[in-house]
Simulated assay, not measured.
Amino acid sequence: MNKVFDMELFLAAVLKGSHATRQRHVRQAKIIQAEIAERWQRETPWVWQKKHVTWFLEKRLARRSNATRYYYLLTLRLLALRLEKSWV
């Protein structure tokens, strides 16, 4: 039996700010997780590598606005902080 990874619980320790900001980070983290899982079959952030995050930033966000890329970068920084990685 596979359990679904709870991104909100995973980020709870590092989320700060207003309710809307926290919800945006959780929503974006779920999108990042889904994209990496679809492309690389890596279901949880614990098994991600820098190349997965770089791929998401460079390929999946290539046609997005600068503001959108900035907000995703903030979310990725939270993920890196939670994982104690130095990706960004």
Results as ranks from 00 to 15, higher is better:
residue 11 L to Q: 03
residue 12 A to S: 11
residue 13 A to K: 12
residue 13 A to R: 01
residue 13 A to G: 01
residue 13 A to C: 02
residue 14 V to H: 05
residue 14 V to M: 04
residue 14 V to Y: 00
residue 16 K to N: 02
residue 16 K to T: 08
residue 17 G to F: 07
residue 17 G to D: 01
residue 17 G to T: 09
residue 18 S to H: 02
residue 18 S to F: 03
residue 19 H to D: 12
residue 20 A to W: 03
residue 21 T to H: 10
residue 22 R to S: 03
residue 23 Q to A: 14
residue 24 R to E: 11
residue 24 R to A: 14
residue 25 H to D: 04
residue 27 R to W: 14
residue 27 R to I: 01
residue 30 K to C: 05
residue 30 K to A: 09
residue 31 I to E: 14
residue 31 I to C: 08
residue 32 I to R: 02
residue 33 Q to I: 01
residue 33 Q to A: 05
residue 33 Q to D: 04
residue 33 Q to P: 04
residue 34 A to G: 06
residue 34 A to F: 07
residue 35 E to T: 13
residue 36 I to W: 10
residue 36 I to K: 05
residue 36 I to Y: 13
residue 36 I to P: 10
residue 37 A to G: 04
residue 38 E to L: 15
residue 38 E to F: 14
residue 38 E to D: 15
residue 39 R to D: 06
residue 39 R to L: 10
residue 39 R to Y: 10
residue 40 W to Q: 10
residue 40 W to G: 07
residue 40 W to R: 05
residue 40 W to Y: 05
residue 41 Q to H: 10
residue 42 R to N: 02
residue 43 E to R: 04
residue 43 E to V: 02
residue 44 T to Y: 07
residue 44 T to A: 02
residue 44 T to M: 06
residue 45 P to Q: 14
residue 45 P to N: 07
residue 45 P to E: 12
residue 45 P to M: 11
residue 45 P to W: 09
residue 45 P to I: 03
residue 47 V to H: 06
residue 48 W to S: 02
residue 48 W to I: 07
residue 49 Q to Y: 04
residue 49 Q to L: 12
residue 50 K to F: 13
residue 50 K to W: 13
residue 50 K to H: 08
residue 51 K to L: 12
residue 52 H to W: 02
residue 52 H to I: 11
residue 52 H to C: 13
residue 53 V to W: 08
residue 53 V to I: 15
residue 54 T to F: 15
residue 54 T to N: 14
residue 55 W to F: 14
residue 55 W to N: 02
residue 55 W to P: 01
residue 55 W to V: 02
residue 55 W to L: 06
residue 56 F to D: 04
residue 56 F to E: 11
residue 56 F to S: 12
residue 57 L to N: 09
residue 57 L to R: 14
residue 59 K to R: 08
residue 60 R to P: 06
residue 60 R to N: 05
residue 60 R to A: 08
residue 60 R to Q: 03
residue 61 L to K: 05
residue 61 L to C: 03
residue 61 L to E: 08
residue 63 R to I: 00
residue 63 R to Q: 15
residue 64 R to K: 14
residue 64 R to P: 00
residue 64 R to W: 13
residue 68 T to H: 00
residue 68 T to A: 01
residue 68 T to F: 04
residue 69 R to H: 08
residue 69 R to M: 04
residue 70 Y to K: 13
residue 70 Y to G: 08
residue 70 Y to R: 11
residue 70 Y to V: 01
residue 70 Y to S: 13
residue 71 Y to G: 06
residue 71 Y to T: 12
residue 72 Y to S: 03
residue 72 Y to C: 05
residue 74 L to R: 11
residue 74 L to K: 01
residue 74 L to H: 09
residue 74 L to T: 00
residue 75 T to M: 07
residue 77 R to D: 09
residue 77 R to L: 06
residue 77 R to T: 03
residue 78 L to D: 00
residue 78 L to A: 03
residue 78 L to N: 00
residue 78 L to G: 09
residue 78 L to C: 10
residue 80 A to K: 10
residue 81 L to H: 11
residue 81 L to Y: 13
